Amino acid sequence: MNAAPVQTLLSRRQYARVATPENPLVLESGRVLRDVTLCYEVFGRPSPAGDNVILVCHALTGDSHVAGRYRPDDPKPGWWDDAVGPGKALDTDRYCVICSNVLGGCQGSTGPSSVNPETGRPYGLDFPIITVRDMVRAQARLLDLLGVRRLLAVIGGSLGAMQALEWAVTYPDRMLGVIPIGGAGRFHPQGIAFNEVQRQAILNDPDFRGGQYYGTPGPVRGLATARMLGMITYRSDESMWTQFGREVLAGADPLQQGFGVAYQVESYLHYQGQKLVERFDANSYLYLTRAMDLMDLGRGRGSYEEAHRRIQARVLAIGIRSDLLFPTYLQRETVELVRAAGGRAEYLEMDSPWGHDAFLVDFHLIAEPIHRFLRELEAEAAGQV
């Protein structure tokens, strides 16, 4: 990779209506959405042949703003700015990178906070249960509208990795490569357990009001608590010792102040909970965590193993040594199943202490392997290997 030029990558939100009353989106559950909009952003330009497009899929509380800034003076760039931009692994001078907010999200795409056209008020819990497969089908409609018929690669971490794998199975002929990072083709029982505790924190907040809290502060305590637990699953014991240890806050005395915030790690969790409350919808948190629970490539396809036989893309599955939420045996299993089905797959492990968040915190550890993988895909497409 080349050193990234000193320039500001600018972006803007765009919107596409991917379902209409005349062309509704039929969900896995059988429910129907007759009006669906996806918010998306585009970085770089498609080649004349349209063969340089990469789809980035975001994680649970992410959005379309994967990189860059909306204005030169924006204080903070997109959530994966280390990965996407000029001269970076996903080089926007070379590739056209697209990222959309998922179906069910709350950052411009249709979700439970959107207005239900049948009632004129936000859906709330009237929004249908959605799956990762539903998200991917909506994304495919977006790419159709944008004229993108085939992708160089699909990449994502966590829930984004689930989407990437679903893409490889649902649309096996639409991409050359898939790069799932810290994810799996089905969620494991401990992950479902973590999600259920987080949802109960929201559902049992008196201010949840059956999901129709719009126009009020909403379940602030419940969502903040859910995020606090989520943040624990994103880190590791090793990273907690490194970042916080058993340090107490300046002036705090745990022996004297009872159950008030005393330790630095406690303060960090409360801070992260409040930050999420300020930018995320509690109902979307419920729906997207349930979509993670429901993730199973094998549903309706004979078996989990049989689903992997559909994958035509070359797979680079990346695990994280210290990942509590998606242990590395899950990524190794993906590689084994693809290979057993006659496909091409390789496993790469990030030697990072930062747990599940390592794909964000320590992206530099995988930047070069991803860059190399993408260049190999390009060579294959050009018939050079």
Rank of each mutant, 00 (worst) to 15 (best):
V148P: 02
R149W: 10
Q274S: 13
A201W: 06
F127N: 00
P48H: 00
R235Q: 07
R221L: 05
P112Q: 09
L269I: 02
L38F: 15
R45K: 05
A345L: 04
V102R: 14
R332C: 13
H188R: 04
D63G: 14
T20G: 10
M228W: 00
D253L: 12
E306A: 15
S29P: 14
F259Y: 12
A367V: 10
R121W: 08
Q312F: 04
I98V: 12
D362Y: 02
N204T: 15
E166L: 10
V102I: 11
E349D: 13
R246K: 14
Q212C: 06
D126K: 08
R372W: 10
G218Q: 14
W79A: 09
S284Q: 09
L325G: 03
Q384K: 15
V56P: 00
S267N: 07
L60V: 03
Q139S: 12
A313E: 03
G120N: 09
P72D: 08
A358W: 04
Q190G: 04
F187G: 11
V102T: 13
D74P: 14
L360M: 14
A4R: 11
I155A: 07
Y95F: 15
R309P: 06
V66D: 09
F43A: 10
L276H: 01
G124R: 09
L288H: 08
L27G: 14
M231V: 02
L25W: 05
V42M: 09
W241R: 15
